[in-house]
């Protein structure tokens, strides 16, 4: 098992290296001289040349790349052009809303998706299954920003139950934060539950036809116990995978929803950086998001060993 995790870790490092390479060289494709961009329209050619030297932009691109890799490896993601502070700091400031949004969204998605998927599998082909499968299909094809706008109109503007946008005053109590996160988390929860429903259903259907389910029934267990203990226990691995990946993808993938609800999260940071061509911020955010994705993947692998004894030994 340790060998497997070690090998896994190795391939994760390669993936991170490839992400960094891709991000670096693609950014260099972008039109415009980064130094000129940093100094704005008023800069003289001399100023630009000096800045290029300061940032090492006059060195060959491969040397620049290696220097940049070294910086990343030590945790330095560079300096934002517009925000006047290190990228890592800018990201850290925006981490909280994104973290809680991802956490609440994936909780909603799992709490809705897993029971619905189980019910759908147990009553396969019946009305429940048709309704659940139909709704899941619908949810997967709703643009989250549009659903967000509709929800804002309904629940914030018309009914006034929730704040329209934002994350509240700095230092606001946590309850107020939750109120601000309720609508966006519900939107993302609904949209992301679709995949969880599908995986849960498929995985449960698979397991329910296994021989040990018949054994469990032959012991006289109630159907609830057969389904929840014997079947669900075996269906967990793919379900954990999809829930974990959903959480991972929400960390950087909630861009649109964060924008709609005016949440000052990482997605919001990326959008404004894109519109202002603040490349260090974009690069840094991409590295961080990919890093979190990769770490959650590793975490999923570790969780497997607790869920499935066959992996443990």
């Amino acid at each position: 098992m340790w060998l497997k995790l070690g090998r896994r870790l190795g391939s994760l490092i390669i993936v991170m290296f490839l992400v960094a390479t891709m991000v670096f060289f693609l950014t260099r494709l972008a039109p415009g001289d980064p130094a000129a961009l940093m100094l704005g329209d008023q800069a003289t050619a001399e100023d630009i040349a000096r800045l290029r030297q300061v940032y090492g932009l006059d060195k060959p691109i491969l040397v620049q790349f290696l220097l940049w890799l070294k910086e990343i490896a030590t945790g330095n993601l560079g300096q934002s052009i517009f925000l006047q502070r290190p990228v890592i700091q800018a990201i850290a400031e925006r981490a909280e809303p994104t973290f809680f949004l991802a956490l609440f969204s994936v909780s909603v998605a799992a709490l809705v998706g897993i029971p619905a998927g189980i019910a759908s599998a147990v009553w396969r082909g019946r009305l429940v299954d048709q309704i659940v499968s139909g709704l899941a299909m619908l949810a997967a094809n709703i643009p989250s920003f549009w659903l967000g706008l509709i929800f804002i109109q309904l629940f914030a503007v018309r009914l006034g139950w929730f704040p329209v946008a934002g994350y509240g005053e700095p230092g606001a109590p946590f309850m107020e934060r939750i109120l601000h996160l309720a609508l966006p988390a519900t939107v993302l929860g609904i949209v992301n539950s679709a995949l969880i429903v599908r995986f849960t259903r498929a995985s449960m259907l698979d397991v329910l036809s296994d021989d040990y389910i018949r054994t469990a029934r032959s012991k006289g267990l109630s159907e609830a116990r057969v389904v929840l203990r014997h079947a669900f226990g075996n269906a967990l691995v793919p379900i954990i995978t999809v829930v974990g990946l959903t959480a991972a993808l929400l960390v950087g993938g909630a861009i649109v929803t964060e924008t709609v609800f005016g949440l000052p999260g990482i997605g919001n940071l990326v959008v404004s950086a894109v519109l202002r061509r603040d490349y260090p911020v974009i690069q840094g955010a991409l590295i961080v998001v990919a890093g979190i994705y990769v770490l959650i993947n590793l975490l999923i692998d570790i969780i497997y060993t607790f869920v499935d004894p066959r992996v443990r030994y």
Binding site: V270, V274, A290
Partner: peptide, 22 residues
Amino acid sequence: RVVDALMALPDILLAIFLVAVL
């Protein structure tokens, strides 16, 4: 591995980055 690297980024984040660059 390249596929893994591309899929380590959420669709919309990768897309917005690429559009910004291109």
